[in-house]
């Protein structure tokens, strides 16, 4: 931000009044940055402490690399590298469903926005209704359904429900209705493109930002989903990392006083939490370039 730049003397009389709002806006943005980041910072620092330091030391102090090392060793020692296995599972589940979600949701959102077909409105309404259904309630029927086709305990029991991503269909739908002019598609049709070519050669390239958005949100949602895999994949070696981490939680003495020598300490839990969410942050960092590029600006100039 450039709040300090203007040369004070030569400015017209209106200028000094323009500075304070800018400063005010800057401080609002900064204040929210602190609000969003401070707890995360605390979490990161907590991984470098011993349980004693966590309670008695200053909250935002750095512990020691040795303590971090010890926490890591203790965490990986828990059930022979179970944490790494969980991470692999999460990547597998979120990865497959990401691919299916994109192949299915983007064409659907496009068709809902840019074409007229029988049942379009019914599809929009039912998608919205299903999206509003309390998730926890859907888990029991889903379980019964997948049990009927013998898929419980297989990868597909989470991958298939994950691949149904109505949120992504709506993101694509709104994107196409608000950002892609129909003239552009009409022009391509006049040029002799088939419907499929219009989609592939005209609409798809323009949709990069929303494809990135859908892909990222789908990945993040599936990675952090807890309840569904908890019910569908009861075996320890099939758990995704979110479920695994909470199985650690029940071994933390300060939350559950009944555990014995297998106890997990709070800084180790913090480390596990951090590891569990790190992939989402890394993907976000790389995807950000595509997420907010206003690629379409100026696509249809008269």
């Amino acid at each position: 931000m450039r709040t300090e730049t203007p040369a004070p003397r030569r400015l017209p009389s209106g200028a000094p009044r323009r500075l304070p709002p800018r400063l005010l806006a800057g401080s609002v943005l900064a204040a929210f940055a602190v609000f969003f980041v401070l707890p995360v910072l605390w979490l990161v620092l907590a991984t470098t402490k011993t349980d004693r330091q966590l309670v008695h030391g200053s909250p935002l102090s750095f512990g020691s690399w040795g303590a971090l090392r010890a926490n890591w060793d203790a965490l990986t020692a828990f059930q022979d590298d179970a944490v790494l296995q969980w991470l692999g599972n999460s990547a597998l589940y979120a990865g497959i469903s990401l691919v299916v979600t994109l192949c299915v949701s983007v064409p659907a959102g496009y068709a809902l926005a840019m074409t007229e077909f029988r049942g379009r409105r019914a599809l929009l309404v039912s998608t919205l209704v299903v999206m509003l259904m309390p998730n926890a309630t859907l888990v029991v029927p889903l379980f019964l359904e997948l049990n009927a086709v013998n898929l419980i305990g297989t990868v597909w029991s989470v991958v298939l429900p994950y691949s149904f991503y109505p949120f992504g269909v709506y993101l694509t739908y709104i994107y196409f209705t608000t950002a892609v002019p129909k003239d552009l598609l009409a022009a391509a049709r006049i040029d002799g493109c088939s419907e499929f070519d219009v989609f592939r050669r005209v609409a798809l390239p323009l949709a990069t930002p929303v494809i990135a958005l859908v892909g990222f949100f789908s990945f993040a949602a599936n990675w952090t989903n807890y309840f569904l895999p908890y019910v569908m994949l009861p075996e320890n070696d099939q758990m995704p990392v979110q479920v695994g981490v909470t199985s650690l939680l029940s071994n933390v003495p300060s939350f559950n006083p009944t555990v014995g020598s297998l106890a997990v300490e709070r800084p180790q839990l913090a480390l596990a939490t951090l590891i569990a969410v790190a992939p989402v942050l890394i993907v976000f960092l790389f995807a950000q370039r595509f997420l907010v590029s206003g690629m379409l600006a100026g696509a249809t100039k008269e």
Binding site: P107, A111, T115, E116, F117, L123, E195, F196
Partner: peptide, 10 residues
């Protein structure tokens, strides 16, 4: 034609 294509896409 467009209506058929729309159905295929969804």
């Amino acid at each position: 034609r467009r209506s058929r294509a729309g159905t295929a896409f969804v």
